[in-house]
Nucleic acid binder design. Structure first.
Lengths: 341, 341
DNA sequence: TTGTACGCGTTATCAA
DNA sequence: TTGATAACGCGTACAA
């Protein structure tokens, strides 16, 4: 790896000149010199040492992407990336980071202290936080004073002045459940594996739809998928038995919908003839299961990109227009919901 | 962020001593000093500046993970991470990298030159390459002289002396197809979306099984899923029509299997009554579709971890025992294959 | 228009 | 057992 110093020596000029050409500070250099330097740079395939550059400038050009790996998100697989929604979002983040000339570093951990440690070491320029709970975001913010953007975060704290990219989860869910109600359903279950954050907001949307239609809610209508692997079989068994009292299930993600659908069908129930199912996300799962899933569409790739664009805006000194950025959703009607009389 | 220099000043000693304590070069320092420094370090929550450290040591502690985003892998979704096999493998890589005290940087691109540029800038200590084709690996190796480990790579070059973590794809496929043959199937199609690398090796396994059973192969038995989004509908339609002449399909991944199954069922064919299907990977898709998929199991998480462990061994000077590391596979029998007479 | 010299935070060599 | 001091490669104020 050749250095600026050596280039300068070989060209018989100073490092300043070389550096200036590299950075396009061209008004201070003669056209001839520019030409000569640029040619030589290409010839030797110069690549800057980013450690030295960062050290000199007190920056890092790194965007830290923090995924808090919550157990409950994992019960169906070994890691959080396995959720197509997450992996598609990461894909969007990666592209946007790269296109902006930054680098991405991925931190997966459920230990906030460890995360803070690692982002501090790298002096990360900005942070994207996904799946943060309660005061996690605040804890990071308190220790690490750099721009940060959250994705899908609901804070239980009073002072929720963080920037967030998310959905109107309550409204989206309310619309989906209304669709079920419009199709004649009155016994509607709510399926998820947790009671916090996004899923809690969706739960309130579900409750709102029920209330507006004059349908009473009981705790039995809440179907909780359990994370523990060993208990999984029994848990599913119990949920399927309970499901027989319902004509429809709203599931908080396509994965849950696919899992429930598969389990129900295995036990002889037909979808949508015996029970209707609706999902959330509109990812590959919704198109591949049979029947194809009616679901709430969201654009995970775009969610990631918007988060990055907002963050880079903040890094370069542009405050976002809104702190709460909300992306669109829409109900995609396929074949998993039946009209009943 | 406090620096060693400042700590030294405040403690009234030299930076050398502080640095020595930090690195446990303890035999050169008095117990009392160690005590005093360590206490202070904790008090001020010292975190090293890794840019400075790397600059001084000529290393980076970064493992570069390169995913060449091939179009054909993407036809069903917007990015390569969306394949559960890939995302699970990345999860394994991330954990292993983190546990070894390294950092992971992810490079997704189909432009080898760009990738080389970016890994050079960061002076990455080692590389993991996934989905490299033909001479891609050699091109990287020629420019960047650091340890590297490939995953699932078959090189068409003569000099394939790179380290690779993979499967015996030919044998695994042969076994799976033999299972179909043992169950009475003679008209067996092969489904994939490309003719290179891993899928080519699997194709030869399929051919071998057919040959050993005295079944003739014709080009019509090759079902090529097409990447182009617009053409997708027509492509699937045509494949499903052709599939009516077959009693079984071997699919190169669970995703393809799930897609084919869904499309076939939509057109009134029953699985496995009318047509049997077998997949590859054994990921979430195989457990969620109906009927549950009979498939070749591989451990994607482990694949990633083994690659990292091998690579870090190489970085620290341990040559791997074998250049071609092969992980186990096994056929997982579920419900998508029927015995016929 | 070009060059000198210093600072960024660490590590490492060598002398004290 | 400790402390100066010189690298590491780059950017930049300031001098020439």
């Amino acid at each position: 790896m050749i250095t600026i110093k050596e280039i300068a020596a070989r060209l018989g000029m100073s490092t300043t000149t070389v550096s200036n050409v590299i950075h396009g500070k061209t008004r201070e250099v003669s056209a001839e010199t520019i030409e000569r330097v640029q040619k030589f740079l290409e010839e030797v395939e110069y690549v800057p040492n980013i450690n030295a550059r960062n050290l000199a400038q007190g920056q890092s050009k790194i965007i830290g992407v923090v995924l808090k790996s919550l157990d409950f998100r994992l019960w169906h697989s070994s890691n959080i990336l396995n959720d197509p929604f997450v992996s598609e979002m990461i894909g969007g983040i990666e592209s946007a980071v790269r296109e902006a000339g930054y680098y991405m570093m991925l931190y997966i951990s459920d230990d906030i202290a460890e995360i803070i440690q690692r982002i501090s070491i790298w002096n990360v320029d900005g942070l994207i936080l996904f799946c943060m709970m309660d005061d996690d975001g605040n804890r990071v913010a308190a220790k690490y004073h750099k721009p940060m953007v959250c994705i899908d975060t609901y804070s239980s704290e009073k002072k929720d002045d963080f920037v967030n990219v998310g959905l109107d989860d309550e409204k989206s869910t309310c619309e989906a459940v209304n669709y079920l109600i419009d199709n004649g359903h009155r016994k509607i279950g709510f399926v998820t594996d947790n009671r916090v954050g996004v899923d809690r907001a969706r739960f309130w949307g579900y409750r709102k739809a029920l209330a507006e239609a004059g349908i009473e809610y009981s705790d039995r209508d809440f179907f909780l998928l359990e994370p523990a692997e060993e208990a999984h079989g029994r848990n599913i068994e119990k949920l399927c038995r309970r499901a027989r009292d319902y004509t429809a299930l709203f599931c908080c993600s396509d994965i849950y919908a696919a899992i429930m659908m598969s389990a129900l069908k295995e036990r002889g129930l037909r979808v949508p003839e015996d029970i209707s199912i609706i999902g959330f996300d509109d990812n590959l799962f919704s198109r591949v299961c049979t029947p194809r899933l009616t679901t709430v569409h969201q654009d995970a790739d775009r969610k990631g990109r918007v988060a990055v664009q907002t963050l880079i805006g903040m890094i370069t000194g542009k405050a976002p227009a809104t702190k709460k950025i909300r992306l669109e959703t829409r109900l995609v009607i396929r074949d998993s919901v039946r009209k009943i009389e």
